[in-house]
């Protein structure tokens, strides 16, 4: 595999340094959610962020997405300082976030319309993507008429339609049943391998993180810091048949996470 951690800045897709994030509660108290985050993600790398709930892992993803402004630090995305959301970073949310009033096809077309892709090309690309994610025949269905797995596939097709070089995924398979989830993981790996996109993947599922990614970023409880970055870039037979190294890694990470959850009660 090609996804070694970045060594030169030019190779990095995302460079986060000295990132702090604080927010104000309703009672005007300042809460520090992210503290001193340093993370460099290479182009084409698949990195997961894992941590106890409330550790700020989703917030980190939203910050990289440009949706949430941060207080201190710097984020460089493909050589340029982060400035708001943009089609270079495609996002997939746990609850799909499809436009419910648009059909599958209209959802997939939307980003290309905003990018002013010529109409013929738009329609052609939408048809191809819908076919690739296995939704052929459902072009004119509304999201409410689809199952959870189909909705997430439609959301992925919508994101891929604008061809982002980075995919930001916020527990994208968290709302799906086990079988659907496993099929979706395979599809995601296939998309990643065939397109060479950089993937930043937030999850609370240890096996999923180890199975999918090349590196797993472990976070502490609030305020979220990076506790450890675990190299998971080895051959895996499958999520549930990964071999000894796989199982050992999962167990090691799981113990770290448990320690964090324990610490938060201590």
């Amino acid at each position: 595999m090609n996804g070694l951690p970045a060594t030169a800045a030019a190779e990095a897709a995302i460079e986060i340094s000295g990132l702090n994030f604080e927010y104000e509660t309703a009672g005007q108290q300042k809460v520090r959610a992210l503290d001193g985050i340093e993370l460099s993600i290479a182009k084409g790398e698949f990195v997961s962020i894992l941590g106890p709930s409330g550790c700020g892992k989703s917030t980190l993803l939203y910050i990289v997405g440009g949706f949430v402004p941060f207080n201190q630090g710097s984020i460089i995305v493909e050589g340029r300082p982060l400035a708001g959301p943009g089609p270079d970073r495609g996002v997939v949310f746990q609850q799909f976030a499809l436009f419910p009033w648009k059909t599958v096809q209209q959802n997939v077309l939307y980003g290309m319309e905003k990018q002013r892709v010529p109409k013929a090309e738009r329609l052609e690309r939408a048809a191809r993507l819908i076919r690739e994610v296995g939704l052929a025949g459902f072009e004119d269905s509304f999201p409410s008429q689809l199952s959870g797995g189909m909705r997430q596939r439609a959301a992925i097709a919508r994101t891929l339609a604008v061809d982002p070089s980075i995919l930001l995924m916020d527990e994208p398979f968290g709302a799906l049943d086990a079988q659907t989830r496993s099929i979706m993981q395979e599809q995601l790996l296939e998309i990643w391998r065939s397109t060479g996109k950089t993937v930043l993947f937030v999850t609370h599922d240890v096996r999923e993180a180890v199975y999918l990614s090349q590196r797993v970023v472990l976070m502490t409880k609030r305020p979220g810091r990076i506790k450890e970055i675990v190299d998971t870039d080895f051959e895996k037979g499958g999520e549930f048949a990964g071999g000894k190294r796989f199982d050992d890694t999962v167990e090691y990470i799981w113990n770290q996470v448990k320690a964090e959850i324990g610490a938060s009660h201590g």
Partner: peptide, 18 residues
């Protein structure tokens, strides 16, 4: 309106007005 809908549109290239 769910913020993820607005965010999705933003990351698909929609400007503030859109």
């Amino acid at each position: 309106v769910e913020r993820t809908l607005i965010w999705s549109a933003a990351s698909l290239g929609a400007n503030g007005w859109a």
